[in-house]
Design a binder for these strands. Structure first.
Lengths: 159, 159
DNA sequence: CCCGTTTGCTAGTTTATCTAGCGAGTTCGA
DNA sequence: TCGAACTCGCTAGATAAACTAGCAAACGGG
């Protein structure tokens, strides 16, 4: 992203680092495009789909999600979040559950419909990604997943 | 993303593949959050920022971008794209240039203001990512960037 | 040279976001 | 223990951004 570009002045080492950053860019670009496509396929707007993505990922980490969490993740107001949940709730994609310990709070749960629908449109991509992954040795995969985890932490600005 | 989860039934090999997919998820989640944050920092809505991202990436690949390309990338209508470009043009982030060979078409160009502003808010993340990358050997970096490129191609559904 | 297509735009409508403010529930210190 | 300050999610009304429909200008193959 930053500087170089005149590759003549770069060492092989610099170039390797550079290539990784370019790879990240390419990946995030492809991700953007894929998610834009899914929004059309699932007949959903970008924000609502981003919320579903977030819910799915948090569910897999066994973390509960509140309306407030959604607002923070998407950086929209809590008022907009209320309406977002109204929409997703009305279409049967999420449910509002009571928070076990806090009477004010809610826990937003995914419905099977969401999971199935998301999987339906995401499955091909997962299979494609798995196919790519399977071409690497286990040692390489460890390096890659370690790298991805570290990059994720690095860009996660804990507000 | 799909299936497993009861890790007892997985081989070490399966687990390595699984971990990479989990890494991709974590990364895309962190990316989502980072971009949401930038939208607040840059005082821009999510779509407009996504358009800027696209333009920056395409510029680095030396590909020109038309309004139509933006519409396809974001999956919004050409009408919405016109207004999006009106906004970004009005705020001095992009310029409409004539297409060299097609009198109907336009080429959307970034301004220095865009590049600087984007870099200002993205620099810290780039540095953080570079720092992570520099902890790996050149051989590992080659594997990683190769992987990222392949994953990008894999999920790029050419409409 | 024409006719069908493509490109980007305008107009008017619908949808989604925002700001402001409220009631209920929680927390904590006097 | 009780009240003040705070947090959570919601409502109401205003603003911003998306959509559909349709148009003129430019292109391009027969």
């Amino acid at each position: 992203m930053a500087e170089p570009r005149d590759s003549a002045a770069m060492s092989a080492r610099d170039r390797a680092v550079w290539e990784v950053l370019a790879g990240i860019r390419a990946f995030s670009d492809a991700m953007d495009r894929m998610y834009s496509g899914m929004k059309g396929d699932m007949d959903m707007n970008a924000t609502d789909l981003a919320a579903i993505r977030m819910l799915i990922i948090r569910e897999q980490r066994e973390q509960s999600v509140s309306p407030h969490d959604i607002a923070r993740h998407l950086r929209i107001s809590t008022a907009s979040t209320t309406k977002l949940i109204d929409r997703l709730s009305g279409s049967g994609h999420v449910v509002r559950l009571p928070h076990p310990h806090d009477g004010r709070a809610r826990v937003i749960g995914l419905t099977d419909k969401s999971r199935h629908e998301f999987m339906l449109h995401f499955r091909d991509s997962i299979v494609a990604m798995r196919t790519v992954a399977e071409e690497y040795s286990s040692e390489e995969l460890v390096v890659i997943s370690d790298f991805l985890d570290r990059i994720s932490v690095a860009i996660d600005t804990e507000e």
